[in-house]
Design a protein around this nucleic acid. Structure first.
Lengths: 156, 156
DNA sequence: CTGAATTTCATCCTAAAGTATGAACGGAAC
DNA sequence: GTTCCGTTCATACTTTAGGATGAAATTCAG
């Protein structure tokens, strides 16, 4: 990246140098020819002025290709849902892996009995997990647990 | 707007004209002084060249200012959630106003007793509404009702 | 290895949810 | 008017959820 930039700068310097050299030779030639005509010094100076004016414009254009102003524009993007799970919150609430599995199934609308079957544990175990979840989420029932979990982005 | 732009252009032309006039006087003065020194024509031409080079750069900058490119950059903004309620789905499911009120409170995690109190109706009424909702949503309990309602975008 | 946290399970009890059925009332449409 | 629909309410019953408590097995870091 840096070598490329240096190369480009070098090329530009070479270009400018060449242009200046050609210009100097051209000026010397113009000076020679115009000096034959007496008192044509004003015309000569005019030519010089125009030439350097154009050169100045050209150089400035080369230096600043175009002035680009970037305007940020806020565009609402429809997110499919909150995709990102807030794992920090999950850790803060000290919800264990197993409890989180229960929470996920609970949020799907499964009953405790369903969850017990799916996780191959007893109904008592599920109830324990659920009760612990309620305490950690600071809610009183499973519907509040679902709502709060979605608000906290700890479930999709 | 257009008159303002014309005025600005006029001001710019006046500015350029004044600068040129001042420059011409300055040049004449320089020419006068330098002609005293014999063969100082090269130095004089150098001064002219530098002056008009700078002038060219300045003019180019002035021109570029009016050539500023504005690029809009779209910044995605995450919407809080799906804001739009799918009222078509709501009508298709034939969910009545009162049932929808119950559904909204239900989705907030309120118990049937809470809903009864808030809507000034009896617990029996709420239970009836809830049962009807379950049938219309084709679910078996309130947690499934919440999940499905959110999926169908009929509640926020 | 020991202690803390996790996971597991049980039992008892209460509260809430959910089902089924019937009925009364009012408004809008036919 | 009467028919349909939404809303209201009640009663009885079953199921599920939730709370409290205790305890055993497992895991895992210090």
């Amino acid at each position: 990246m840096k070598s490329l930039k240096l190369t480009k700068s070098f090329q530009r310097i070479l270009l400018y140098g060449t242009v200046l050299a050609v210009l100097v030779f051209f000026l010397k030639w113009v000076q020679w020819n115009f000096l034959i005509i007496d008192n044509a010094i004003d015309i000569y100076i005019g030519v010089i002025a125009v030439l350097f004016l154009v050169l100045g414009v050209w150089i400035a254009n080369q230096m600043i290709k175009s002035r680009t102003v970037i305007v940020e524009r806020k565009v609402p993007v429809s997110t499919p849902r909150t995709v990102f799970i807030n794992e920090d919150t999950l850790r803060e609430l000290a919800i264990s892996k197993r409890e989180y599995e229960v929470l996920q199934l609970l949020a799907k609308g499964h009953t405790n009995a369903d969850i017990a079957t799916e996780l191959f544990v007893s109904l008592s175990t599920v109830k324990t997990h659920v009760s612990n979840l309620f305490q950690k989420l600071d809610v009183k029932n499973r519907t509040q647990a679902i709502t709060k979990s979605k608000e906290l982005n700890i479930i999709p």
